[in-house]
């Protein structure tokens, strides 16, 4: 390829100034036109797509963080609610327990009271019965005695005798 003709201007195969100028001008025109009509729109679209994808990634990331935050919030709320419910249950249980104890106490004291009053009544009744019996026994013994000794005793002596007996009865009892 080192034909000396190559390096001589205007050689048959070689440097033609006209070709060079045409080539240069043609290429510059091609570059300008092709950039305006093809590359510029194409680059814009690619740029737009890149931005779109970047935006989408950002949005997805933001959404993810947001949802994570919401989930945590909900979890916290759930935990709080659970604690609250537990507290309410505990409270109710405690209240019920104390109420139960109180009720038992009340019932016990009531029973005690009823028992007491019953005992008192029994005591009273007994006393009354004893009194009634005393009187009854008195008259009965008088009647028996009068029947036995046939009016040999006076009423006063009789009375005295009865009292003596009665006291003996009370003592021996």
């Amino acid at each position: 390829m080192l034909d000396p003709r190559l390096f001589i201007l205007n050689a048959e195969i070689g440097f033609n100034a006209g070709d060079m100028i045409v080539q240069l001008v043609m290429f510059v025109i091609l570059l300008a036109l092709i950039t305006k009509f093809a590359w510029r729109p194409l680059m814009n679209v690619m740029q737009e797509r890149e931005e779109h994808v970047a935006n989408e990634i950002d949005t997805a990331e933001k959404n993810r963080q947001e949802s994570e935050r919401l989930m945590k919030e909900a979890q916290d709320e759930l935990k709080g609610t659970r604690e609250n419910a537990q507290k309410i249950i505990d409270d109710a249980r405690k209240t019920a327990k104390s109420e139960e104890a109180e009720m038992i106490q009340t019932a016990k004291s009531e029973a005690e009271r009823i028992k007491e009053s019953a005992r008192q009544e029994i005591e009273q009744e007994k006393e009354r019965a004893v009194l009634a019996l005393q009187e009854q026994v008195g008259t009965l013994s008088v009647q028996i005695a009068s029947k036995v000794i046939e009016k040999e005793l006076t009423v006063d002596e009789q009375e005295k005798l009865i009292n003596e007996y009665l006291e003996k009865v009370g003592e021996s009892k």
């Binding site: 205007n10 045409v22 093809a38 590359w39």
Partner: peptide, 28 residues
């Protein structure tokens, strides 16, 4: 005197440019 044109080169330069331009424009 020095301004010579090889018309073949002129033609082929033009053809190549045209082809490239058409491809680019059709593709975009």
């Amino acid at each position: 005197s020095w301004l010579d044109f090889n018309l073949s080169n002129v033609l082929m330069t033009f053809v190549a440019s045209l082809v490239v331009f058409l491809i680019a424009v059709l593709a975009s």
